[in-house]
Amino acid sequence: MPLSVQETEIKNPPVSRPPLDPHLKALENEAIHIFREVAAEFENPVMLYSIGKDSSVLLHLARKAFFPGRVPFPLLHVDTTWKFKEMIEFRNRIADEYDLDLVVHTNKRGAEEGITPFTHGSAFYTDVMKTEALKQALDAGGYDAAFGGARRDEEASRAKERIYSFRTPDHKWDPRNQRPELWNVYNGMIRKGESVRAFPLSNWTEVDIWRYIQAEDIPLVPLYYAATRPYVERDGMMILAEDPRLELQPGEEVKHGSIRFRTLGCFPLTGAIRSTASNLDEVIAELEIATVSERQGRAIDRDQSGSMEKKKREGYF
């Protein structure tokens, strides 16, 4: 007698949608293939979950890849304690709703030493609260593969990164000696202590991400949509002014305006854009004529050209 999927109890059964266009379908198929391959070849994978739009797409694809089974690995969120409040609320709701194993890690040393983006500068803060914290969490979990939502179109050094990006036991990336990657045949052989970062969204662009979110109706943190919010202008960025830890400097004042975010990170380091795009259609319409890249709002990318590569070599995603 044929076995049937309907007999299986599935939490959150999917709803039926119109089929994806061939472009998005091809990207989705590729990502699912990568998810399944990594899950099968590695002993202890984990998915880096940053709560942003790319992570939301990544999570959606993971659920698709393993359906009707559960997502067979935990999600890891490196919490710097400086994330937007709405991000944390969203994270907890999603983990509950989708029945996910969520691991949250904060660099206790950094937190105890009072390292903040305001007092220690973005570079040092990022190094301790993100890069060091990530390495601590990966070591603690003994993970041999970590999924990330990085895309090659984001930044110049990422354009060269493999889908399986090999890391030494101390999480270093050597861009000059990457393993060749041919066809969709991935080399998952590593020694104990070594690991790979796996990037199922490598070939997606920012527009693809948004169109996929639209087509698949993927929930997002509301900060991506324009609303009237309080902000201060600092170093040419609009910083959201709702966290009491944000202290106004002389000459600064809290303003209100219709703003939204193109990427989400730590609120003191993430600049908003002026926008009235309050829903998906409007965000996509805005994006298609945008003349600046999405990482333009990220302070950590702006120190110097090549700074992402430096951070990646040291273990940053």
């Binding site: 049937s4 007999e7 299986t8 099968a40 009707p68 559960r70």
Partner: peptide, 14 residues
């Protein structure tokens, strides 16, 4: 790529 067995009644090949 993998065999999925979410329960006794389902066995799928992915």
């Amino acid at each position: 790529q993998r065999v999925v067995r979410p329960g006794e009644s389902f066995r799928g090949y992915q």
